[in-house]
């Protein structure tokens, strides 16, 4: 049994491998990018807008509102990163309803890459807003002895992010695969529907956790800036 779509390799040249995960991701990227271009090329700033524009505005403003509710005041700064994270995860997970589709999020490489993005995004946003000194000082607060624990926390939560998403998505795909073998009639449909819910929740959790990490670090750095 295949656990990860990484195992499906279309082309391999030394270290370079073109597998199902990367291809699926490209397809998703193309779909999202082309869809955005198609919808936003005829944007109207009048009061009356098209339905697609309304849907996109609702999604974007919804994400922006969620980011603000987490505690990040300048939501526009984080919208591109966190919004893309959420939309990519959501679309990637929701498309599991297609029969032959395997989400790239069921690959630990993908979830690890996203978790690493969050890992680097936290210091990137904080340093750009509060400066590198204030960011580094937050690691030795309240006492310098806390430094190793802060570092361990950074790595562990990145690992937790990656494994949580991978585990949920991989297990969902695995369960559907197993159920298709045992009871191919009813249960796979139910589990697929359940997988849609799980995928949406995981996309939301991943994005919210990333927002919380950035916001928490921003608050710590913000305290340093005030003091």
């Amino acid at each position: 049994m295949r656990i990860s779509p990484d195992d499906v390799v279309f082309f391999e040249y030394g270290f370079v491998k073109l597998n199902l995960t990367i291809v699926t991701t490209w397809i998703l990227m193309a779909f999202m990018a082309i869809g955005s271009v198609l919808i936003t090329r005829k944007l109207k700033s009048r009061v009356k807008v098209t339905r697609w524009q309304s849907v996109l505005e609702m999604i974007v403003t919804g994400i922006k509102q969620q980011i603000e509710e987490v505690g990040l005041q300048k939501a526009e700064r984080y919208l591109a990163f966190l919004g893309t994270l959420f939309l990519f995860l959501l679309l990637s997970n929701l498309l599991t309803i297609l029969p032959i589709y395997e989400p790239p999020t069921s690959s630990l490489s993908t979830t690890a890459a996203l978790a690493i993005s969050v890992f680097f995004a936290v210091p990137f946003f904080n340093i750009s807003e509060h400066g590198i000194l204030n960011y580094l000082k937050s690691y030795v607060k309240p006492l310098p002895i806390m430094l190793p624990f802060h570092i361990i926390s950074e790595f562990s939560r990145t690992l937790a992010l990656a494994v949580r998403l991978f585990g949920n998505m991989m297990s969902g795909v695995m369960i559907i695969g197993i159920l298709l073998t045992i009871t191919p009639l009813i249960f796979p449909i139910v589990m697929t529907a359940f997988g849609l819910l799980t995928g949406s929740v995981q996309a939301y959790i991943f994005t919210i956790l990333a927002s919380v990490f950035i916001a928490a670090a921003a608050q710590e750095s913000g305290k340093e800036t005030e003091t």
Partner: peptide, 25 residues
């Protein structure tokens, strides 16, 4: 776990961030 896939997905994600920022947000 595959390192190339990880790096490729990292790059893919950053490209997607740029694309969506440019054409959506």
């Amino acid at each position: 776990f595959d390192w190339f896939t990880l790096i490729a997905q990292l790059v893919n994600f950053l490209v997607l961030v740029w694309l969506l920022k440019r054409y959506l947000y």
